[in-house]
């Protein structure tokens, strides 16, 4: 009963983050929302571990915290490489040049 309020609040948070991921408008907003989603999933797993009295689940939360970080970094690298950042309020006149210069250097 202690955990019910926290579980519900985390689920609401997940829903709101999902709405932001769907709305965008830039790809970075979506990645930030996914990052928040992952962090809250770690907390959700930890609360569920105590709710169901299965403390082994804490190991999974620990691993998920690391995997979430790596996945966000990987997504960010992918977006930076592929130049598929686009959206209504995104001003991409500066982006092309920067990436062209960076690729030339490396």
């Amino acid at each position: 009963m202690i955990y019910a309020a926290a579980l519900f609040a985390i689920l609401v948070t997940l829903g709101l983050a999902l709405i932001r991921a769907l709305l965008g408008p830039t790809v970075f907003d979506r990645i930030a929302a996914i990052n928040l989603f992952g962090t809250k999933t770690v907390l959700l797993i930890a609360v569920i571990a105590f709710y169901t009295k299965r403390l082994d689940l804490l190991d999974i939360a620990l691993v998920y915290a690391l995997i979430n970080f790596i996945s966000v970094i990987a997504l960010q690298r992918l977006v930076a490489q592929k130049e598929f950042h686009s959206g209504p309020d995104h001003n991409d006149q500066g982006g092309q040049k920067v990436f062209a210069a960076k690729e030339g250097q490396s």
């Binding site: 979430n68 970080f69 500066g94 920067v98």
Partner: peptide
């Protein structure tokens, strides 16, 4: 878990903000 979250979350946030700034 808390230690990992505290260490990794600013790195992820900074990486994202930096990428957004680099892309203009």
């Amino acid at each position: 878990i808390l230690l990992f979250l505290i260490i990794t979350s600013p790195v992820a946030t900074h990486a994202l903000a930096n990428a957004a700034r680099q892309s203009g």
